[in-house]
Design a binder for these strands. Sequence first.
DNA 1: CAGGATCCGATGCGATACTG
DNA 2: CAGTATCGCATCGGATCCTG
Lengths: 109, 109
Amino acid sequence: MVKMKRKENIEGCSVECTLNVLCGKWKGIIIFHLLKYGILRFSELQKLLKNIVTQRMLTMQLRDLEKEGIVSRHIYPTVPPKVEYFLTDKGKSLAVIIQGLNDWGSDYC
Amino acid sequence: MVKMKRKENIEGCSVECTLNVLCGKWKGIIIFHLLKYGILRFSELQKLLKNIVTQRMLTMQLRDLEKEGIVSRHIYPTVPPKVEYFLTDKGKSLAVIIQGLNDWGSDYC
DNA sequence: CAGGATCCGATGCGATACTG
DNA sequence: CAGTATCGCATCGGATCCTG
């Protein structure tokens, strides 16, 4: 459930709106780690996700988050290429929520 | 992205675990409304969702939430049938998170 | 009223291979 | 190293119809 953008807003409930940003495989963890480490290279993110995720998936999730204005990236024009990902202010504002999700998960899963 | 249960736990990150519970179309809003109203009949939930959701979908999401121990239901053996849904303690513990999601959505969407 | 049964399209997600 | 391109399946989710 990832790209299921919804335009209709259910009477003052913006819950789904936020979930649309967070739901998508690995997005939560990606933000979690970026909050923790600040800046991470593509390969570092992949390692943190224990190589469970394929490059393709990681790329897609990062692109989605970029579109939403949650993460941004800095590309070094070097060889071999080096790309760093970091949270935008909008992304950092998710800190409380991510922390809450993490805590709840620790308690109830 | 609803049934994508993940067993692997990424080094002390339980974020995805919670997202697995919340992600699924309408689950967030369902919990949001149950937090707000306490108890809701099937048909009341459907109206609150502005009839956007089909009975089938609403039923499925409620069954998922029930399996996770988030909601519970009380069936009145009457004709016509009457079924009430309400949050379990585990479900109520999501209040802070749901509120956070709602606030963030209001601010950034 | 609440919800089960079917059908069916959309897309989420994975595996694999290739490139500047 | 950090991607893009293809292929393919599983499942998510919508529409419709049926029932105790």
